[in-house]
Design a protein around this nucleic acid. Structure first.
Lengths: 226, 226
DNA sequence: AATTTTATATGATTAATGTCAGCTTTTTTA
DNA sequence: TAAAAAAGCTGACATTAATCATATAAAATT
């Protein structure tokens, strides 16, 4: 059982409000897990009974629609919490969480979160701000899907991926998504996504080497994205 | 200055957790307002500095996109609160709120909400649940826009309007939206919306008399909506 | 009441994007 | 390493839904 006081990623989530005693108590009740790439943390409809704190790795939160397409609602990276919404709503998960890379996560049981919620106003305020931030992002995402073209959304998504997850030493996007997953973020068909990537490539906006995507002209991409 | 203790709609929002003292204090600091149909409560980008509690009437929360279309993100009815998200995030409004009917609202200043938040755990938990509910709805709405056809979404929206706002004695939808507004909810062009309403009419699923829409076969509509 | 403006309606056309099919490359598994 | 499976790519085509044009009806204004 590792220490929560030393945990760096804590600073990035609502947990930053916890005091020493609370952290000791947290360390005692949390459990650590390794989630392999492609494995689910939980699936839509499951009862989660706690929240996950991501120590390393990235995961996608998505919803499978009746036509078999996986719409990615958001990506989560180290330092963020997963499952707050359904914990607070006291409902089963609305989205499926699947690891995009090998992940390390800590599971904090619901009872512990609720007791923190009661005892620590700053913690609950932080949690609330996170959920409110998610709500704003999701509203904006919704408007973007309904008002922008696929090309604009793809450009927007590529910029988002670079800004949020950074790049490798060779300049390529650090996060590796399949074309299908990228399409799921953009909300388009896989073929359309591939075709537009290929167009961007021909226009010199990006470079493609297998799964690696390198953004060459981010200003032009930003202009396309609006 | 009217009484908050006697206010019925309080029961429908996070405010139901307030005790007698808190309600007296609330009554003393809140202000009541009449908003005429078509008038804005606030616009995107404005600082709201408090929350509105809707006593009567309905309003739309929408976002104007660069191409001039108004995407309606959600509708709000009596008993609900408006502006929690930006209050908690401490940000300007992300959406514009416009009255669809004459409305009565009470404005509660930010300082009062924050002090309730600190003093009353149940209140903050309620507020949090509301925001989480909004987040789930918005996520689902987003997936619906990206995965369903316009026809399916229109059917879905009509069912939602009947279930949420009820019908008049003659069976027509109680809430009256322009075709443009309905299109804004469905996320489609006004013409497409009109055309599909006309199709539904010909198929005997609904009846149109001017602005009045009457749902005739809600089962078939539900089947179309999925 | 007449006129202007706005909303609703419908047809024709175009543009955007999804679907299907076939092929190549990459990855996985035996 | 060979074979099989999955992912990526491209072209052809179909479909959906947006746009444009125009007509009618309703509402607002003079």
């Amino acid at each position: 059982m590792s220490n929560c006081e030393q945990c760096i990623v804590r600073q990035f989530s609502a947990l930053k409000a916890l005091n020493k005693d609370e952290l000791v108590k947290l360390a005692a009740c949390k459990t650590s897990h390794i989630i392999k790439k492609g494995a689910p943390l939980f699936e839509e409809g499951e009862s989660v009974n706690g929240i996950y704190c991501v120590t390393s790795g990235v995961c996608k939160m998505s919803k499978l629609s009746s036509n078999g397409k996986d719409q990615i609602v958001k990506l989560i990276k180290a330092g963020e919490l997963i499952g707050q919404r359904s914990l607070i709503s006291d409902e089963p998960a609305n989205l499926t969480a699947v690891a995009l890379e090998d992940m390390e996560v800590c599971f904090i049981p619901k009872s512990e979160v609720l007791s923190l919620f009661d005892a620590n106003n700053q913690f609950s305020m932080n949690l609330m701000k996170t959920v409110c931030g998610d709500l704003k992002e999701t509203s904006d995402h919704m408007v973007s899907i309904s008002q922008k073209t696929v090309k604009e959304r793809l450009a927007e998504t590529l910029i988002y991926l670079e800004e949020t997850f950074g790049k490798n030493e060779d300049g390529s996007l650090h996060i590796q998504l399949s074309r299908e997953e990228l399409a799921g973020m953009v909300s388009t068909a896989t073929e359309s996504c591939i075709r537009l990537l290929s167009d961007f490539n021909k226009l010199g906006l990006i470079e493609l080497h297998g799964k690696k995507i390198t953004i060459i002209d981010s200003n032009k991409l930003k202009r396309i994205a609006d």
